[in-house]
Design a protein around this nucleic acid. Structure first.
Lengths: 130, 130
DNA sequence: CTAGTTGCAAAGAGTTTGCATGGCG
DNA sequence: CGCCATGCAAACTCTTTGCAACTAG
């Protein structure tokens, strides 16, 4: 399963990497990119490929049926747990040392191995608490 | 918006409260209860009501489009963070004191207020790590 | 009685897929 | 050139909704 460097893939990656703190639905993405000549199905297919490659995270905000995608900026995301603000929709990184402490603590006390790439903590960010 | 105590609601609650450690889809629930004379739409409508009443948690396992429901046993769940095993599908409770420590730590270090009722940590449980 | 609830089937929303055409390498 | 990717529209899945019949209070 090769990976042609098509115009659509390039434009999508470019778009995603400039929206790293947002979780976007395929529909929204496709709409934003329509002008650049990318079909909805190209968006879906490329997102699926990117997810398989580990370049994009797929997520549903808690319990909605809507699926959202977010670019994984490996330089910044690696090793962090993610905090998602239910009010403004932005994503934040939990401090690295805290993440480590936390993951280890759960491993020890609850015998549970956290999957950092997959879990997202829901709540409210500093700005929105105001 | 009253709340008639109908046969369907009773049977559904009974069913859910005896599956507290599982996350079930509306389809599965409806299928299991079909024999007891409950339609799919009654299942959906009652689940929505129960969710609004805070008796049921709605969740999608990370990024799938499928929605799952789980009875909230307030005596046991209150104040705990939930750990979901991606392998066996069971849910566990994080220790109370640890949950508190963790939530406070994030509030202090990251200025982020965790919503305990809504967040679920993904990973692998003791049994499945074997 | 009289409103909320049910069952059914039809409508919706979002996603996936088949197939002919187009474009990367 | 050969093969993968694209675009379109049709198919799918799961959920929601309209409406007449039913039932709890």
């Amino acid at each position: 399963m090769p990976n042609y460097n098509t115009k659509q893939r390039r434009v999508l990656l470019d778009y995603l990497s400039s929206h790293t703190d947002e979780q976007l639905s395929a529909g929204i993405i496709a709409n934003d990119l329509k002008a650049r000549g990318i079909s909805l199905s190209a968006v879906y297919r490329n997102l699926a490929t990117l997810e398989a490659e580990g370049k994009v995270r797929r997520n549903t905000k808690g319990g909605s049926r809507q699926v959202f995608y977010q670019y994984i900026d490996n330089d910044h995301c690696k090793g962090h747990l993610h905090l998602y603000c239910k009010k403004c929709g932005k994503t934040f990184h939990m401090h690295l040392d805290e993440t480590e402490r936390f993951v280890n603590s759960i491993a020890k006390n609850d015998d549970f191995q956290i999957d950092k790439a997959n879990t997202i903590l829901y709540g409210m960010c500093k700005m929105c608490q105001g």
